[in-house]
Design a protein around this nucleic acid. Structure first.
Length: 276
DNA sequence: AGTCTATCCTGCCGGC
DNA sequence: TGCCGGCAGGATAGAC
């Protein structure tokens, strides 16, 4: 599933192909992907020039220059979304939901098997962006911030770390991996995590994400591919996610899987002693 | 304030 | 072999 490292990979690969390009037309094959108003969506985009391509949490930000002023095309891949640039003559695949034609004869394609992904035309003041927590690879996140933030909440670690308003960019895979790397159990109440453990967790999160970006993300199933069509490489380095019943690479204890907040959760009982 | 449930979707897998 | 129920999962809304 696309989380921060996967989205960062997509942004990095799309950036050179899109910067300076003008959108000359397009087609919406599944209106809900763009919020239901396909006509307004395409009219708002046609003629716009892509200024910058950036990432914020798991969102892709396409900053646009238009005659009527600046705008923002906001993308979210959710579970199975895929954005890639292909020749404009590429026939639509079975899961193509949106296509934006570019002035160089190519096209930006949005494929999405499960149709949860979204493209939305908005502005930089979008409420969804304003509500996000800090970037785990950014300057405001670190051991001190995390220790204070965990103490200020009374929630179990896993749902809290998945909450994008608390910290933006982690998903199910990297939360499980970060908690294992820090030796923390997902059910631990956040206010019971001391400064030392919080520092360990903060460092684990940064190290993990940076490494995963380097490996172009994790391709755990058939869904995630980079825009250039390659699978990521970080799945080879996963220590708990998807490894139920197999021995922990650190201590040999079989990895266990259970539900936390309706999420498949993986722990090593040896490395991550339970709370209480 | 925090937790739980349902919703959106489809492909895939296990059971029969 | 084939049908079918259940599951996975990011974000969000609403109930408790």
């Amino acid at each position: 599933m696309p989380e921060l490292p996967e989205v960062e990979t997509v942004v990095r690969q799309l950036r050179p192909a899109l910067r300076g390009r003008r959108i000359v037309g397009g087609a919406v094959r599944w209106p809900r992907t763009v919020g239901g108003r396909s006509r307004a969506f395409l009219e708002g985009l046609t003629g716009a020039e892509v200024d910058r391509v950036e990432r914020r949490a798991k969102y892709l930000l396409f900053h646009l220059r238009r005659e009527g002023g600046a705008a923002l095309l906001l993308g979210h891949l959710r579970m199975t979304g895929r954005l890639h640039v292909e020749a404009g003559t590429t026939p639509p695949g079975p899961y193509e939901r949106v296509r934006l034609e570019l002035d160089d004869g190519r096209a930006l394609l949005f494929d999405d098997v499960r149709k949860f992904g979204r493209l939305r035309l908005t502005t930089e003041a979008d409420a969804a962006l304003a509500a996000l927590g800090p970037e785990p690879l950014g300057p405001s996140f670190g051991p001190a911030w995390l220790a204070r933030a965990l103490g200020a909440r009374r929630r179990r670690l896993k749902p809290l770390l998945l909450d994008q308003r608390f910290l933006a960019g982690l998903g199910n895979i990297y939360v499980d991996e970060a908690l294992h790397a820090a030796g923390l159990h997902p059910l631990t109440p956040s206010q019971r995590v001391g400064p030392e453990a919080a520092a360990r967790l903060a460092r684990a999160i940064r190290r993990l994400l940076a490494r995963a970006v380097k490996r172009e993300g994790s391709s755990f199933d058939a869904f995630y591919r980079t825009p250039e069509g390659r699978p990521g490489g970080f799945q080879d380095e996963l220590r708990v996610y998807g490894r139920e019943g197999r021995p922990c690479r650190a201590c040999g204890t079989p990895i266990e899987r259970f539900e936390v907040g309706q999420r498949g959760t993986h722990v090593c009982p040896g490395c991550q002693p339970g709370p209480r």
